[in-house]
Amino acid sequence: MNTGPLVRQISRRQWWLGASRYRRYMVRELTSLFIGAFAFALIVGLWRLSQGAQAFSAWLDAMHSPAGLAFNGIALAAALYHSVTWFNVAPKAISVRIGTFKLPDSIISGAHYAGWLLVSILVLYLVRV
C-alpha cells in the first residue's frame, strides 16, 4: 500500500478562526461592509434631500433614532479600525529612499496619522455654524 503524499484540507468558511492574525484580517476586511453601507446611507440622504425639507429631516431623524445610532456606532468603530489598519500598513506600499537612506516606517505612518488628524479637524471646522 502506498497512499502517496497527504493533502490536508482546510475549511473554506472557517480557516480564518484558526489564528488571531487571520481573525484580525477578517475584521479588517469586513469594515468595508460599513464603509459601503454608510455610503448608501448618504445616497439615501441625497434622495431625501431631493424630496424637500421635511423628507430630509425625516432622514436625519432616522440617522439619529436608536437603530440609526446603533448603526452609526458600529460603523464608526469599523471606520476607525479601517483607518488604523490602513495607515499602519501604508509603509509597506510606500517606500521612500534618498540614496541609501530609507525613510523609517514610523515617519510614513506618522505622516498619515497627522494627515488624518488635520483632515478631520478641517471637516469639523468647515461644517461648524
Partner: peptide, 24 residues
C-alpha cells in the same frame, strides 16, 4: 489580499508583503 502574515513569519526580515504591494 494583503493579509500580511508572510512578513510576520519571515525569519529573515525580507518583508514579502511590502514587495508584493510595491509590485502591485
Amino acid at each position: 489580499s494583503f493579509v500580511g502574515a508572510c512578513s510576520e513569519v519571515c525569519p529573515k526580515g525580507v518583508d514579502p508583503a511590502a514587495a508584493i504591494q510595491q509590485g502591485k
